[in-house]
Simulated scan of single mutants.
Amino acid sequence: MLFPLTLLLAAPLAHAQTSTVVTSPEPLPAAHDRPRVFLGGSIDMGNAPDWQKGMIEALAADNVVILNPRRPDWNPKWRPEADEPEFRRQVEWELGALESADVIVLYFSPGSQSPISLLEMGLHARGGKLIVLCPPGYWRKGNVDITGARYGIEQVSSLPELIVAVKRRVAAINRK
């Protein structure tokens, strides 16, 4: 009698869905069979808080592909120039990941500048993929808010709200 009970208890685990994290510069998966969430926003050469870690944990059971540009081996000595091989590799990975993403998360951390995140917001403002968190204290909050309003970008006011918004967007994509 123990055997059937064990099978019954294990059945939900067999159907558990987990997310996959792809961190730069790992290749993007060839199959696009699950929603892809790009975690853009403040990194500041590794000096900004690792908010991506919390988002990855929150999405762990949502069966998504998480595209994380924050790489553990980043070397601040790499010149931010096109002829610097690792810098080019990072930028090209991010551009490809952004294009392949179904949801682009941008978090503008107070006290950071995040010029690349501003660039990414501008590139994708009209695409309908963005969810933005820009709390008070971000040096260009006004620009982000005005641009967000102009282009109908979903904006939230806290990290917990950001997680809820991303989960809601992923669920909507899965229902299609």
Rank of each mutant, 00 (worst) to 15 (best):
D102P: 05
G122R: 10
P136S: 11
C134T: 08
S109L: 08
K129V: 01
L119G: 13
I116L: 13
W93N: 08
A82D: 13
V103Q: 04
G128K: 11
P72D: 14
N75I: 06
P115S: 04
N75V: 07
S114T: 11
P85D: 09
W139E: 13
E86Q: 14
N75R: 10
Q90K: 08
P115T: 04
R70L: 06
Y107D: 03
A82V: 13
E92A: 11
P80T: 12
D83Y: 14
H124Y: 14
E120S: 02
E99R: 14
R70V: 00
S100W: 09
L133D: 02
Y107N: 08
Q113N: 08
W139A: 09
F87K: 02
A101T: 04
I131A: 01
P110E: 06
P110D: 08
Y138S: 03
D102N: 15
V132H: 05
E84K: 04
W74N: 00
A101I: 04
D73K: 11
F108Q: 08
Q90S: 09
W93C: 05
E81F: 11
V105K: 05
A97L: 05
R79Q: 15
P72F: 15
S114M: 05
W74G: 00
E84I: 04
Q90G: 07
I104H: 00
Q113S: 14
R140W: 00
A97K: 06
L118T: 06
L133N: 06
